[in-house]
Amino acid sequence: MMGTIWFWIVGAMLTAYVVLDGFDIGVGALHLLLARTEDEKRLVLRSIGPVWDGNEVWLIAGGGTLYFAFPLVYAASFSGFYLPLMIVLWLLILRGLSIELRGHIGMGVWRAFFDGLFALSSVLLAVFYGAALANVIRGVPLEADSYFFLPLWTNWRVGPSPGILDWYTVTGGVLALIALAVHGAAYLAVKTIGDLQQRARRTISVLWIPLIAITALSLIATMAIRPQTLDNYKAFPIAFLIPAGVIASLIALLLFSRRGNDRRAFTASCVYLALMMIGAAAGLYPALLPSIIDPKDDLTIARSITGHHAQAVGLAWWTFGIALAIMYFVIIYRMFRGKVDLESEGY
């Protein structure tokens, strides 16, 4: 029972990461296209400046919580996804630097370099995150000792010896890139005015059809390569509200954005991403990392949950700690609410 709670806690923290860091990654992926002048570039950076670092903490805290609650899953997945995780780390390093160091030297070459690095690292991070999630859904070739090691690619096919990248996980990567780009555009529309805001809104309109198409494609592909995903949905038909909500939130996103109601459009985008994550978790449950070879090797909650005392104490401090964290986020987002300008302190 408590294992189930921890499953959803880890899921919720990673969902919070995707929704929060998702918009600043999306902003990074788009900013070369949307921000044309130096002032616009600084506005774009200022829109995420005070919050991106805190958003990224959800990844660290989520990873730490996974380590704490499911040590076996943490150990197996982090060593098995060794190469892509290292690449993600390098991208996170380069991206953090490009945001923070750009403003330190007033040279055109310096700034252009970090602008490019910011865009490139954001695009690749989105693709890698999508592919990572798709790898978990597809399953990995777990060995008898519950470890595995995946090369970056093999024959690009979903089979018994897959690579990190195959057609399915690449689809997941492209989906993540488009979804986060739309999410970032929706955020920018909230935070800016004038030309920048118009371009952000137009981006949502342009990317909306591809987004809905690839969302549908990925859902069908998931059912094709891993039919067990539907088991929980069949057992609890109420879960079909999740995909229904995905479609509804996408429609709401477009309608609100067209009417210029940017805050609601951004909310719809948050709901869309959260439901995609929850839907994936619901399909996996009770496995955290399924085996592509034999379902009895799946790393499930029961096999990988930590000891009783840790679970019980953990629930107490986690609840308290996250309540504090949410309070900090409310303070910060309230403090820096509204449209960004070049008058006040910032990048």
Binding site: A61, T65, A69, T306, A310, W318
Partner: peptide, 13 residues
């Protein structure tokens, strides 16, 4: 796992 998770939750935020 306990102190490492607590570091993220209590300190980094």
């Amino acid at each position: 796992g306990q102190p490492l998770a607590m570091e993220g939750v209590f300190s980094f935020f």
